[in-house]
Computed example of a mutant assay.
Amino acid sequence: MKPAIAVVDIHGTYKVHTEFYRNPSARKTIILVNGSLATTAAFAHTLKYLRNQFNVVLYDQPYAGQSKPHNDHLQPISKENEATILLALIEHFRVHYLMSFSWGGVAAMLALAQCPTRIEKAVITSFSPLLNEPMIDYLERGLIYLHAGAGDELGHLVNSTIGKHLPSLFKRYNHRHISSLARHEYRQMHAHVHQVLHMDAHCQMKCLSAIETPLLFVNGEHDEYTSPTDVRLFAHHLNDCQFSIIRNAGHFLDMEHKNAWLQGQTAALSFLQGPAVSSRRYHRAAEFQHAPAL
């Protein structure tokens, strides 16, 4: 079933391409938040299991994908602005759940810190509150290529670092996509990377205590850039969070192999469709390791 396509006006400032997958039997709606340099296509695997359970909203940031023709790209968009866009879409589509990938976790958590009343639960995947040594090295090298608009080199960098566990077919797609981006997209990512490299942490810890939404953090066992160990720092700052490790997977999780996809599906649906849990609680990852590793 094809999605309903719409360009949504955000406060008269941005125009955002959206795709709404309606499930006639679903009572809940989930919105997916892209990582950097990505478009709605990046969620193709995740969509396969979510659309059977929920209405699903995908969107491209104003500077990316099918939103590009509708915006002027004169200035980079801040993560705070991305959070504002997300909050507006949550209201527009009457969203109940949120799921983010990688750098999309920054905008997601900034939005959640504003306590959107509609959001009941959120899944944050491949994200960490820390910039550890592998991530800093990756970002510093990426900053050079982004500044130069060197898409070919940037594509190789992504595939040899955070994307090193991807199958060869996905690496080819990744490289083709990253190497052919518009100049303003490289400027956008350069501005963001430059900002986070000059902060103590790219996730603003002081805002976390305001988040009331139950969260599930999902990280790959072999992801050294947003590692399962580093993400546990959130347990000290959030009121209600749980953790899941996807065995034998790196940063890109369900894109890497079928078993990782099955594990991610089980973890996400068990959390989203399970009973609401309140109070300050730390759930060990083992509680959500339902699928065996390859």
Rank of each mutant, 00 (worst) to 15 (best):
F54V: 03
V56N: 14
V57T: 08
Y59W: 05
Q61D: 08
P62M: 04
A64I: 08
S67M: 10
K68G: 11
D72W: 02
H73L: 09
L74G: 13
L74C: 11
L74A: 11
K79Q: 12
E80S: 14
N81K: 11
N81D: 15
T84I: 05
L86Y: 12
A88N: 12
L89D: 06
L89R: 09
E91R: 13
V95G: 12
V95L: 10
H96V: 00
Y97W: 03
Y97E: 03
L98I: 13
M99H: 07
F101L: 10
G105S: 00
A107W: 10
A111P: 07
L112D: 04
A113R: 04
C115W: 02
P116S: 01
P116V: 03
R118C: 09
I119N: 02
I119T: 04
A122D: 07
V123S: 10
L130H: 01
N132Y: 12
M135D: 02
M135K: 07
M135F: 04
I136N: 11
D137Q: 13
Y138H: 13
R141L: 14
R141C: 10
L143E: 15
L143R: 15
Y145L: 12
L146P: 04
L146V: 06
G149T: 09
G151E: 05
E153Y: 09
L157R: 09
V158M: 05
S160D: 09
S160E: 10
T161H: 05
T161V: 01
T161K: 05
K164A: 00
S168M: 07
R176C: 05
S180F: 01
